[in-house]
Nucleic acid binder design. Sequence first.
DNA 1: CTCATAAGCAACCTCCTGGTTGCATCATAG
DNA 2: CTATGATGCAACCAGGAGGTTGCTTATGAG
Lengths: 117, 117
Amino acid sequence: MSPARLEGPSGHADAGASAHVFAALGDPTRLGMVVRLCRDGPLSIARLTAGSQVTRQAVAKHLHVLARAGLVRGHRRGRESVWELEPRRLETARRYLEVVSKRWDDTLERLRAVVER
Amino acid sequence: MSPARLEGPSGHADAGASAHVFAALGDPTRLGMVVRLCRDGPLSIARLTAGSQVTRQAVAKHLHVLARAGLVRGHRRGRESVWELEPRRLETARRYLEVVSKRWDDTLERLRAVVER
DNA sequence: CTCATAAGCAACCTCCTGGTTGCATCATAG
DNA sequence: CTATGATGCAACCAGGAGGTTGCTTATGAG
């Protein structure tokens, strides 16, 4: 297998997409917004901005970043735009981590088998 | 509750730490290294560099980033330094995502209960 | 002992990111 | 119709992140 190719834990080339998701979750402000959306359900940008420490524009930017990662989806409702969580990608990322740690356990076991033989 | 406080899904102020972990996983090169360490077990920097497209120094930097996030641990063995995965933090991050998506399901259910009443 | 190999340190560069301000647009309440 | 509130768009800025090159140090092989 070519070492240049970036591969995911399941052998697919999904590391790129997952890295995108993790990068989106990697900013504290953004992660806070995700948690907020999770707790309080769909929210408008203005509502999301109130109770945050950054500008409305910053909030909007972050929402677009999250949307590009597939973590969030928004639609216009009247004069405000409402955003809500997209849990599928979240689930995908969760499974990614699951596979990695699982695989790691297997590796440990293999090593132990070799060493303690 | 103060909106300025950044809170995790379980109510603790662990969003900062988790954001650190996600940020560390958010870079494709780094995520690739994690997967590689997961697949092939403990590796030296030189071995990790071979089969990567970046410099040895870049690899070392990334390892330190991962270490600061608690995802990886390294020790000197002879003239080489060997690095291995630290699966506990990985597990923590996984659980974080799990809680968020779970909580989201609860939110959905609550909303549905209100709307369809 | 000598030499090649593995790693550490430091400076440097470029580009992206998080954040801001200012202004334009559009929908809704009266 | 008008004023106000909610967004969208664009320019701009500082700082950090990812990456490189060059040099030094230490350890293991012969």
